[in-house]
Amino acid sequence: MIIEWSLNGRPLRSEVSPFRKLLDYLRQDLKLLGAKEGCREGKCGACTIWIDGQVANSCLVLMGQLSGKEVTTIEGINEKDKFTPLQESLLTASAIECGFCIPGMLMSGTVLLNQNPDPSRLQIRETLKGHLCACTGYQKIIDAIEGVGLPPAVDGRARMRARR
């Protein structure tokens, strides 16, 4: 089946089985490895991507469902020679350890920040409900998302609110 869709802003015509999962197609065929493969059942959120600007688990989407859709992966939001505000904030908050969950968290966090530039911690926790992180815990990731809305870094200091 030929699927006409767009990936990271580029229109694509893909000849692919409609029963193939988006995650497999991205990783195995297109070699876009930013969306990570964790649980494959929509619990861990490591494979989170955007479909028409909304977060979705790419392990729970079939290629056949994507006709006319716009898909964005982390490769699509990376900017050349600079970090996005959330990426920068994740770095300054030391929110990255193994980094396996980060691409997914980044996709969800970015959508949240696009909708609400100054979210509350509760809103951030609600947003991260569909993500699992096994090393650092969530506090630093929440700090980082919250930090994007705070005044920019001065003198190399992290944009972070003091921990309560």
């Binding site: 490895l33 990570k36 992966t73 982390i74 490769e75 990376n78 970090f83 980094g99 980060i102």
Partner: peptide
Amino acid sequence: EKDKVRGLAFY
């Protein structure tokens, strides 16, 4: 860190 935050680190 830079690779990880951009989803470019290989696992």
